[in-house]
Structure formats: structure tokens, C-alpha cells
């Protein structure tokens, strides 16, 4: 194993400049009738230009809420950001005026949502919705906007774009709708795209088409990409680095190759072990015991401790800090050395 350590897929060379986007100690909480749900609890991550960061986590891990906070589309109230910074090209977006943020949204940072059908307006043609980007942000005329929409649809490889520009969302298949979402995100050539489970609702063959398209579009520019997903396969396919989230915290971050070869957190390790493998057919699948925590009652200490095979007393009392495990690598586990070791 170590002999073939060729570093074939070394992470993208670090740029000398500041990262494109940096999230620092972000907290997001929701005030509900039943109490305060701390959805995001001190998340740190960064993306450089041209880089793909995968944020991996289950439902309720805070991965989508973090993205919404970055986009500035969090519902507030009930949401609140009591603490933290979101630096985009060096500027803290949380301190900006609503007006300034709106200028960034769509133009500099765009988002692709999971469910294309419910994210598109059913009573407006896709050409109108795409053209809206140009009319609102660039003040183009209707005619010019439509021409740009057709160009965009061509770019995301929708066959017969000219004929289909006046079609409505329901006339497109799931994969084609997701392409329209991608086209909309690309419209103003943003520096950063956040894709929240972009292929979860799609079939594998269509997923392959869409991920392929995203990778190709990214190659053409220096766009940064934050890919939010729960699919370990998709991550391995496209990401440069990974942040694994659990109960509102990042439990592990690492360059993509290292995390698959040698996870440093028991949660990541459990997820990787539970993937069915050919050579273990007929045996029981490894399963992480228990359930993801309720955010209103996150266990004390390490949130993963009730499900963790390595949990000791210290895990039930002390929240583990993100230990540095290697270059660009961290694990929020008291026993990361042991986890790495075996």
C-alpha cells in the first residue's frame, strides 16, 4: 500500500493569495418552540479558486445550513448567526449591507439546488428565468437576454436550445432541469458555485452526465466549487479536499486521497467501512450503530460518542478540538492517533 504511494493525486498547489472563500468559526442556531437547535457549531473551511471542496454529511449535519449562510439565504428568524465570519475575497460578508450582499449573490457566488423542479418557477419559461439573470444584473434587453439564454443552454449541452428556450420546466426531464439550474448558476460567471446535492435526485447515468459537465465547466474557468453531498462515491470522483460534518461540526478535513486511504475520525471510518464491497459479499455490512443526534439534544462532549466504538470517558465530557493530523488535515477526535493507527 505505502509502496505505491506515488502522490498521483496531490491536491491542487496552494495559491499564494488568500483563499477565495473562508468560513471562520461559523455558528448558526435556530430558535424553535422546543429550544435552541445549534445547527452549525464553529465550522471552519476554505476554498481556493479552481478547487473543489466536498462537504460530506448526513441530514441534520449542518452542511446545507452552512451553505445557506454563505449565500445569505438563511431564514432569519428563526435562524441566527451569533458568531463567525464568512470571508469572500477577503471581505466579511456577514458585516456587509444587504445591498452589497445582493450584488455578490448570483454574480460572484451562485448556488445549484438539489430539487430542480421545485427551484424553478413552473409558470415561467426557462428562457425567461435564465434571461432574468441578465436583465436584472446586467440590464440587458429582453431580446439580448434571450440570446444569452440560448447560448447558456448550449453551454450546458441542452439539445435544441433554440427550440426549447420557451419551454416550461415541466417539459424537461430531471437531468435537463438540473442542467438549467447549472446554466442559471453559471450565467454571470461566478467565482464560486455552491452545489447542494446537485445529483441526489438523478439516476446514475444522468448523475454521471451532470458531474461530468460540472467538472468540464470548472476546467474552463477558475471557478471554485463547494459540493455538498452524502455520497462517498461522488466525492471520490470530483473533490480535491473534503470536510466531513457531523452534528454541526467538522469532524475531519483532509485532501481527498488521504481520507479514503486512512481516515482519522471514527465517523469517517465507519462511513467508509459501511460501503458494500465485493470481497465482503455474504458477510454482514459494517454498520455504525445508533442514530444521528437530534440537534436539540446533542450529546455532551463529542457528539459522536454514543455511536463511536472507541468512545472513552473523556469523549463524554470534553468536546474534542480539531487536531492537526498532517498537512492540511485535521480530525476532531481525542483518539485520532489510534484511529489512524489501526
Amino acid at each position: 500500500m505505502t509502496a505505491t504511494d506515488t502522490m498521483a493525486g496531490a491536491p491542487a498547489p496552494a495559491t499564494a493569495t488568500a483563499p477565495l472563500l473562508e468560513v471562520r468559526d461559523l455558528h448558526v442556531e435556530f430558535h424553535t418552540r422546543d429550544g435552541v437547535a445549534r445547527a452549525v457549531n464553529g465550522v471552519n473551511y476554505s476554498v481556493n479558486a479552481g478547487e473543489t471542496l466536498a462537504v460530506l454529511g448526513e441530514s441534520g449535519s449542518g452542511k446545507s445550513v452552512t451553505a445557506q449562510a454563505i449565500m445569505g439565504i438563511l431564514d432569519m428568524p428563526p435562524g441566527r448567526i451569533p458568531q463567525g465570519e464568512i470571508l469572500f475575497q477577503g471581505q466579511d460578508m456577514l458585516k456587509m449591507s444587504a445591498e452589497a450582499r445582493r450584488k455578490i449573490r448570483g454574480r460572484k457566488i451562485a448556488m445549484i439546488f438539489q430539487d430542480a423542479l421545485s427551484s424553478l418557477n413552473p409558470v415561467l419559461s426557462v428562457g425567461y428565468q435564465l434571461g432574468e439573470m441578465f436583465r436584472v444584473h446586467q440590464g440587458l434587453s429582453r431580446k439580448a437576454a434571450k440570446a444569452r439564454s440560448i447560448e447558456l443552454m448550449d453551454r450546458v449541452r441542452i439539445p435544441g436550445a433554440r427550440a426549447r428556450v420557451n419551454d416550461y420546466p415541466h417539459q424537461f426531464s430531471g437531468g435537463m432541469r438540473q442542467r438549467i439550474m447549472i446554466a442559471m448558476a453559471l450565467a454571470l460567471e461566478p467565482d464560486l458555485i455552491i452545489a447542494d446535492e446537485p445529483t441526489t435526485a438523478l439516476d446514475v447515468t444522468v448523475q454521471a452526465q451532470v458531474m461530468d459537465l460540472l467538472a468540464e465547466l470548472q476546467r474552463e474557468s477558475t471557478m471554485g466549487l463547494i459540493l455538498i453531498t452524502h455520497d462517498l462515491g461522488v466525492v471520490a470522483d470530483v473533490a480535491d479536499k473534503i470536510a466531513v460534518m457531523y452534528a454541526g461540526r467538522i469532524v475531519e478535513n483532509a485532501p481527498v486521497h488521504e481520507i479514503y486511504r486512512q481516515p482519522a475520525h471514527p465517523y469517517t471510518k465507519g462511513l467508509l467501512q459501511s460501503i458494500p464491497r465485493v470481497d465482503r459479499k455474504g458477510q454482514e455490512l459494517y454498520a455504525i450503530k445508533g442514530l444521528p443526534p437530534n440537534l436539540l439534544h446533542v450529546p455532551a462532549g463529542c457528539a459522536f460518542n454514543p455511536r463511536c466504538p472507541m468512545a472513552q470517558d473523556v469523549c463524554r465530557t470534553d468536546v474534542p478540538p480539531l487536531h492537526t493530523v498532517g498537512a492540511g488535515r485535521g480530525s476532531a477526535c481525542h483518539f485520532w492517533k489510534e484511529t489512524l493507527g489501526d
Binding site: 498521483a8 446514475v204 447515468t205 448523475q207 462517498l232 471520490a236 479514503y260
Partner: peptide, 9 residues
Amino acid sequence: AVPVPDPQA
């Protein structure tokens, strides 16, 4: 088309 959970793939 199935993504393989192994970056080396």
C-alpha cells in the same frame, strides 16, 4: 456510471 468510492479510480 456508478461513482467508485476510491479517489484512485
